[in-house]
């Protein structure tokens, strides 16, 4: 049986599948449940300084099985209330990553210290939620601010720090590089892709917030490209996120350079059993491929030889400069 264990940002995971932030993470019982259902570890809901209701409904729009648009608006119970939820997840033995969001470096640093005190094994910085004013991708758009926030958090905590970067940027890898330069231990890519839906009959946006973030299989190619480019740009580990619903998806991300992955929207489509199902599939697939350890494949698609030129052109490989 292939070895699915991975180590990333100080986390020793039994398999590379992390529960993505924002999914099931508001309550401790749910975090625990995700781990017990087979996740290698869990990332909490993004927690802020104060309780926050998020936006009114509709907060989601779905597209059959290929995608989902959401504008939850970062609802969370606030850092004063949240420790007891984390305690419940830790009691199950789950590797727990505490996700936080803030308006500036000071707030991030304060929240990081508070969440570290709960016993989490790492902190993930939400620099990438595309639908909340003054936080998320609004602070994560600018490499200088990414670096400033990362540096402040690194100074405030001892646990590893993961910067979650946005794909809504011309050069997401530059955000990964900025995080690395400021001492981040890993980056996760990507958060949702900004999008919206309009109802023709009503002539109005569907989401109460108007715009939201697209997730699910539709964004897997976007996530893969960001992971690929981040892997080429930084030396710290990359965690792949976006549209993973199968072992094959995991392997694509790993080959692109991801050392672990986060799974989110698939939970809505399949239920929490998705973790156990993908982990089992992954072990079988690696056995088929004759790969003993998943970690051997991290980034293995980089440096692959380009497809051979077809004599006379016309078919197959088309060179970019003719």
């Amino acid at each position: 049986m292939a070895d699915l264990r991975v180590t990333v940002a100080g986390l020793s995971l039994r398999n590379p599948l992390l529960l993505a932030s924002g999914i099931w993470g508001e309550s401790g019982a749910s975090l625990r449940g995700a781990f017990e259902a087979g996740a290698g570890g869990v990332v909490t809901k993004s927690i802020g300084s104060e309780p926050r209701d998020g936006y009114p409904n509709p907060t989601i729009e779905t597209y059959e099985r290929w995608g989902m648009l959401n504008a939850m608006g970062l609802p969370n119970p606030g850092i004063d209330e949240y420790p007891r939820e984390i305690a419940q997840a830790l009691s199950a033995g789950a590797p727990v990553v505490g996700s936080i969001f803030g308006h500036d470096a000071d707030e991030f640093a304060r929240l990081a210290a508070r969440i570290e005190a709960t016993g989490v094994h790492a902190v993930e910085l939400n620099l990438s939620c595309p639908h909340a004013e003054g936080v998320g991708s609004e602070v994560g758009q600018d490499p200088a601010r990414v670096a400033e926030i990362t540096r402040a958090v690194k100074a405030a905590v001892r646990v590893p720090v993961i910067a979650k970067i946005t794909p809504n940027h011309a050069d997401p890898a530059s955000l990964a590089a900025a995080a690395e330069s400021a001492g981040a231990d890993a980056v996760s890519a990507i958060n949702t892709v900004r999008g919206m839906a309009i109802d023709v009959r009503l002539r109005r946006p569907v989401l109460a917030h108007g715009t939201g973030g697209l997730s699910g299989p539709a964004i897997k190619p976007v996530g893969l490209a960001c992971v690929w480019q981040a892997f080429e740009r930084v030396k710290i580990p990359v965690i792949g996120v976006g549209g993973i619903t199968s072992a094959e998806d995991v392997l694509e991300y790993v080959l692109a350079g991801a050392r672990a992955v986060e799974v989110g929207t698939a939970v809505a489509f399949e239920g929490i059993g998705v973790f156990g199902r993908i982990a089992a599939e992954l072990a079988r697939r690696l056995d088929q491929l004759g790969v003993a350890r998943l970690e051997e494949l991290v980034g293995a698609a980089h440096g692959a030889a380009p497809p051979p030129r077809t004599p006379g052109g016309g078919q197959g490989y088309i060179p970019t400069s003719v």
Binding site: I23, G54, T59, I60, N70, A268
Partner: peptide
């Protein structure tokens, strides 16, 4: 919120 077993509300 989501009614899909995802958001934890």
């Amino acid at each position: 919120k989501c009614a899909l077993g995802m958001c934890d509300a």
